[in-house]
């Protein structure tokens, strides 16, 4: 059952994306077949997407896949990794590269129970040194190592 419902959720999500694109896209100029406006292509595409997503939704209900443990959502790593990337984005904007590396690696290691802070800190230090050598020194990209505020 779990599989079917996740498939349905994704199909619904896709239909939602299509519907949003359709609504927003229909505010653009459609034009004519000769001189297609900016809205023509997106509107056609999003309509097709909605139809396909509905078909997939129906098929998810009709044609049930056998239950499969690999199709369960692993919430812990999902949230940990996504927040690690988000954390990197926020930290590099305000504090620079080195703090951002500590944040991204630290949050990533929350994916597993009992990772421990020691290996996380060691990994962060190694990554910082490696990235500094590689990007700043070798490739000549002056990335903001430390900064405060915007």
């Amino acid at each position: 059952m779990k599989t079917v419902s996740l498939r349905l959720v994704v199909a619904a999500l896709l239909a939602g994306i299509g519907l949003t694109a359709l609504v927003v896209g229909s505010t653009y100029d459609l034009g004519s077949a000769r001189r297609m406006g900016p809205g023509y292509f997106p509107v056609v595409l999003s309509a097709v997407l909605v139809l396909l997503a509905l078909a997939e939704g129906v098929s998810a209900i009709v044609k049930r896949d056998p239950e499969n443990p690999s199709s369960k959502v692993d919430w812990r790593p999902l949230l940990a990794i996504l927040s690690a990337v988000a954390g990197f984005a926020i930290t590099i904007a305000f504090f620079g590269l080195i703090p951002a590396f500590f944040v991204v690696i630290g949050l990533s290691t929350l994916s597993e129970r009992g990772y421990g802070w020691k290996p996380a800190v060691i990994l962060s230090i190694i990554t910082c040194i490696g990235a500094w050598l590689l990007f700043s020194q070798l490739l000549g990209m002056a990335l903001p190592l430390f900064r405060l505020g915007l």
Binding site: G96, G140, M141, A142, L143, P144, L145, R147
Partner: peptide, 15 residues
């Protein structure tokens, strides 16, 4: 790319 720099930092670095 080599030139995507943040100036403030880059100046300090270059300097």
């Amino acid at each position: 790319m080599p030139s995507f720099h943040w100036n403030k930092i880059r100046r300090t670095l270059a300097a």
